[in-house]
Design a protein around this nucleic acid. Structure first.
Lengths: 342, 342
DNA sequence: AAGCTAGTTGACACCGGTGTCAACTAGCTT
DNA sequence: AAGCTAGTTGACACCGGTGTCAACTAGCTT
């Protein structure tokens, strides 16, 4: 049994297919009784609009894509969930595309993706959102995008969190617990967020009139393994830190592992904390103290914003000016991996 | 700059658009020099076929959907990754759909999904794959699907792992480590996989000439929290088990948490193991011993199989008969959460 | 050279919708 | 009643491809 088309409905209702189209799209200027007649026919035939036909006619695919290259699966999972939720609500499809930030062929790769799938817009997760060549290509092709947590705010709209404040707040919390020898594991050197969190960490020390022990600041790369490595470095120092603050949870989980391997009791022997609040932080023992970055909500908002922008595609003028970013504050979530230093 | 269409290419090459179409689709019976001329024009104009036009003409969307309702994010993530990989390779799109197995409106919900997105086929993850009403609806609409790890093998093709054997092997491994008081946390009572793993557990005891202590078999639901609850029950017994075997890793992680809350040293005081080999098993301390179920590979194979079947859609006769399942064996991965019982 | 056949090509309709524009209608004003 | 205007409707072309079928062509056989 073939599905009913717009022509079937038109015949059934005794009107033209254009009129049916008007009713479907809820356009004004359709006489009330005509509208009701058509609606009755739609119900009678169980008509559903074919999205492919519409997409072709409207020259829009009703799909958006999420471009990511994030080392923390938990981070991505939450983001994706939020985006998916918004997409489902608004009857848009979501295309996932996992790319490599460092790949030389990234721009042509995405160009291909855009051409082959005809996505209407893109959501760029960090660090992809900071690939300037990519943004230039998208601008040139006039493809709308929303950046999540970008480095600069020069291009397009974006949504992100106040990474510096998160880091500042967490450091303050540790200082308040009387920790002074705090190990800090930085984020990936390529990413601006890494710089922001380090800044927040240093600012908190400064504001407290304290000095950062540079030997306790260790390079990380946002990955689990880099957390392990950094923790190993820190824990083998003659002067071991009493707390380790990792710039994201993925690394904090690595720190926890390494600390337990060193037979340390958490939080008695060592406090550990991270940033993001990914799900694994409440699955490990002990649960990890973190700054909650509401990734699900951010994904949801980013997708909603993008879909909104796609609706009024006639307006080439951006809805708001550049430098146009929504910044969301993190929230301190105290769990069992941190305690007062005696 | 508008993208080149098939008509542009036709004009450029001085042929009809049908001939261009033939070249694109690599059809036989095109004269060699014509083909080359067209290919030159395609290259010159940087032509890319519009997938929407093709989809509409062919009455196929070139999308498949993954239907899931799985409580373990790690399980799903791996499956999804494998499926996505195959889809990307074969130029198919993937639609994710997270539904609720127990929802009353599931069947109409999926019916809507299928109509609104026109997916060509479906991959059904457990436990969705066992929803008979859903399968009947899909059969009636003649929509192809592949089931992953289904209960029965009556309908369509499927791919799964030998859950009974995995459980049997793991139990044997524990027995070989001299464990006798083994706590077993079952899977979700609705899912056949739960029955199979319990069967394997019992068979191993039987084959070893031992008896299962029924008080150590506790109901679980495949979720992290159910693992915690079950572990709590087991660890508070007067006769505490020396090992706990959870029917999936998600629960095993919960067991690990609870055991550590009870101040137990793993594996010295308690051995813990699970099934699946999801990524978190190598992030917690200590890493968890498990049976590797190559979910990524299974996802990949399932998608490839489905896409294959969609290619010869003329053949309504199934490529192979019913009862047609690929069964993959798990592999014991020994890590740090299990040790010999003294 | 005529006849045949397999190979090659294009005209046309179609997939299922939407946009444009002209024509028609209803209800008002004069 | 004629004229006007805003509201309503449908014919037609189009989005970018593919399927069907008939016509044409090249190269062979007789």
């Amino acid at each position: 049994m073939r599905a009913a088309t717009i022509i079937d409905v038109a015949k059934h209702a005794g009107v033209s297919k254009k009129t049916v189209s008007r009713v479907i799209n809820n356009e004004a200027n359709v006489r009330k009784e005509t509208k009701e007649k058509v609606q009755a026919s739609i119900a009678a035939l169980d008509f559903k609009r074919n999205p492919l036909g519409m997409a072709l006619a409207k020259n829009r695919s009703f799909f958006i894509a999420l471009l990511s290259d994030n080392p923390s699966p938990g981070y991505l999972m939450n983001l994706q969930k939020g985006i998916l939720q918004s997409c489902t609500e608004q009857h848009m499809g979501l295309f996932l595309y996992d790319c490599s930030y460092r790949s030389k062929g990234l721009v042509p790769e995405i160009e291909d993706l855009v051409e082959n799938t005809l996505v209407d817009g893109l959501i760029l997760a960090p660090p992809i959102c900071d690939k300037i060549e990519l943004l230039e290509m998208l601008d040139a092709r006039n493809i709308k995008y929303i950046r999540i947590g970008p480095k600069d705010l020069e291009r397009g709209e974006s949504i992100g969190f106040n990474g510096m404040k998160s880091s500042y707040d967490m450091t303050n919390y540790l200082l308040k617990l009387n920790h002074r020898d705090i190990g800090f594991i930085t984020g990936h050197p390529d990413q601006e967020s890494a710089r922001r969190s380090e800044k927040g960490f240093r600012q908190a020390f400064k504001d407290a009139g304290l000095e950062v022990d540079e030997s306790l600041v260790v390079q990380g790369y946002y990955t689990y393994q880099s957390g392990i490595n950094a923790a190993n470095t820190l824990l083998n120092k003659e002067k071991r830190p009493t707390a380790i603050f990792a710039a994201n949870d993925e690394m904090a989980v690595g720190v926890l592992y390494e600390a337990q391997s060193h037979n340390l009791r958490i939080p008695n022997d060592l406090s550990i904390c991270g940033i993001d609040d990914i799900s694994i932080t409440t699955k490990v023992w002990p649960n990890i103290t973190t700054m909650r970055h509401p990734l699900l909500s951010i994904g949801y908002q980013a997708a909603s914003l993008l879909i909104d922008r796609l609706k009024d595609k006639k307006s080439t003028i951006p809805a708001k000016g550049p430098n146009d970013a929504t910044i969301i504050d993190g929230e301190l979530v105290i769990r069992d991996s941190t305690s007062k230093h005696k």
